[in-house]
């Protein structure tokens, strides 16, 4: 996401992205692809088939892969359920080994046991995901 093309009032919850192709490529593709008037048969004899580079709009179909990704997001949850008391302290301990923000907010005893190697491997997985994501998105945007 290119921040420079996006504006908003300071403190506003709403981001503004101008039209005119000023957004990201994903925005442009989503805005214009497969839209607009289609020339019908009456004049199609004059329509020239030109070679269009393959551009695919992203189609979202939930799949096992999606489900596993959501489950992985549960692993990365750093937000403590609001109705649970006393957890921040426990999480604070568990987070010692993990980077803040990537800490696993395990519940109860399990959280205390997450330390050292386990937390590290979780953290690695988290950062791998982050590296993967932009690459995949770019591929899909074309």
């Amino acid at each position: 996401m290119t921040v420079s093309t996006t504006t908003g009032q300071p403190g506003s919850a709403l981001e503004r992205t101008s039209g005119g192709g000023g957004g990201t490529l994903a925005d442009v593709v989503e805005t214009v692809l497969d839209k607009g008037v289609v020339i019908d048969a009456q004049v199609s004899i004059a329509v020239v088939g030109i070679q269009l580079l393959e551009i695919n709009a992203r189609i979202v179909i939930a799949s096992v892969e999606t489900y596993l990704r959501f489950a992985e997001a549960v692993d990365r949850l750093s937000i403590v359920p609001k109705d649970t008391k006393g957890l921040p302290d426990l999480v604070g301990d568990a987070a010692g080994a993990a980077t803040k923000g990537k800490a696993v907010s395990g519940l109860g005893k399990a959280a205390q046991e997450i330390s050292g190697a386990v937390a590290d491997s979780l953290r690695d997985r988290g950062s791998e995901r982050e590296r993967e994501r932009p690459r995949r998105r770019r591929d899909e945007e074309r």
């Binding site: 214009v32 839209k35 607009g36 008037v37 020339i39 009456q42 004049v43 004059a46 329509v47 020239v48």
Partner: peptide, 18 residues
């Protein structure tokens, strides 16, 4: 009225026909 991306016709006559 946007016309679908990729619509190309043979020439000005075809545009007028359309």
């Amino acid at each position: 009225l946007p016309v679908r991306f990729g619509t190309v016709v043979t020439g000005a006559d075809a545009v007028e026909d359309l």
